[in-house]
């Protein structure tokens, strides 16, 4: 990995996240668990870093530390130039406009007592963005950006499918024009066909808005598709971190090798299937 001491962009890079030697130990009675064991990485603006690993590997704890929800024992988490854990509550709250999160559970993360419109607008109200009318316009813009239409704004999350809920959660995350979006298993609970749509949308939104993603997943195939760089976590440590081509072509760490080897690869795709995919892809591209 590269050096981790800089928060400035003197080397021509523009990191949105700098995690610098994060350490955290959880104590349960006499037992100790190293949740974060010298975790360091950077994520450059407009790129995606995937954190992959199994349950308990420290992926979500890393995200929580970056978001300022979990304080590390040592080390720094720097987002958009600010040390997240060295800010006052007020400053942290302001920084939260720049970093948003989308979670796994499509239904659990939306307030069921509110309409979709109110859920998205909530982020704007919390930070006093715009007049009532401006907010309404922005909400309409956002719901269209995530591929739904304005008829959804009056609905309740209970009336939506998992994929639609996840689109709403993404719209809410984008409301404040963040620089960083943390996606914590954000597509894991979705059906295959819905997941494909959401992933395509996330890629497009990243291009359109120059977003930086911290993409947490246990699914290596999804990580490979989404991320520029991939960090593999195991027992609180990043055991391997490289660009995606290198990671899959030449995994160095035995744990990474094991992880890749344990993925069922039994889906041989014949020529006919490939041809059909290409045909549908072309139709899709024509559709815009």
């Amino acid at each position: 990995m590269t050096d981790n001491d800089g928060t400035t962009s003197s080397d021509g890079t523009d990191p949105v996240i700098v995690a610098d030697d994060l350490q955290l130990t959880f104590h349960h009675g006499k037992q100790e668990t190293k949740a974060l064991d010298h975790v360091s990485f950077r994520v450059e603006r407009g790129t995606t870093l995937a954190l992959v690993g199994q349950s308990g590997s420290g992926k979500s704890t890393t995200a929580r530390t970056i978001l300022g929800i979990q304080k590390p024992d040592a080390g720094r988490a720097i987002v958009c130039g600010s040390d997240v854990h060295d800010l006052s509550q007020r400053e942290l709250r302001l920084l939260r406009q720049k970093m948003q999160v989308v979670l796994q559970d499509p239904f659990g993360q939306l307030n069921r007592r509110h309409t979709v419109g109110r859920i998205i607008e909530g982020a704007l109200i919390a930070f006093n963005r715009g007049s009532r009318r401006e907010r309404r316009e922005r909400v309409a813009e956002l719901i269209r950006a995530v591929g739904l239409d304005e008829s959804y704004l009056g609905r309740n999350p209970r009336e939506l499918s998992g994929g639609q809920c996840q689109r709403v959660a993404i719209a809410r995350a984008l409301a404040l024009q963040p620089e960083l979006v943390v996606l914590d298993e954000a597509v894991s609970a979705l059906d295959v066909s819905v997941r494909a749509q959401i992933l395509n949308m996330l890629v497009q939104l990243q291009k359109d808005f120059g977003l930086t993603y911290l993409f947490i997943t246990h699914d290596l195939a999804v990580a490979r598709y989404m991320a520029h760089d991939i960090a593999v976590m195991h027992r609180g440590r990043i055991v391997e971190h490289s660009d995606r081509d290198t990671l899959f072509a030449n995994p160095k760490d035995p744990y990474t090798q094991g992880l890749i080897a344990s993925i069922p690869v039994g889906l041989p795709r014949g020529a006919a299937v490939r041809a059909e995919f290409d045909r549908r892809l072309e139709l899709q591209l024509e559709d815009g």
Partner: peptide, 23 residues
Amino acid sequence: TLGLLGSLCTLDMELDRPIPTMP
């Protein structure tokens, strides 16, 4: 079935273009 298999993320899928979705 074709739509389902097409929209699946696999380790050998092509990158840098959209994942084919269900018609």
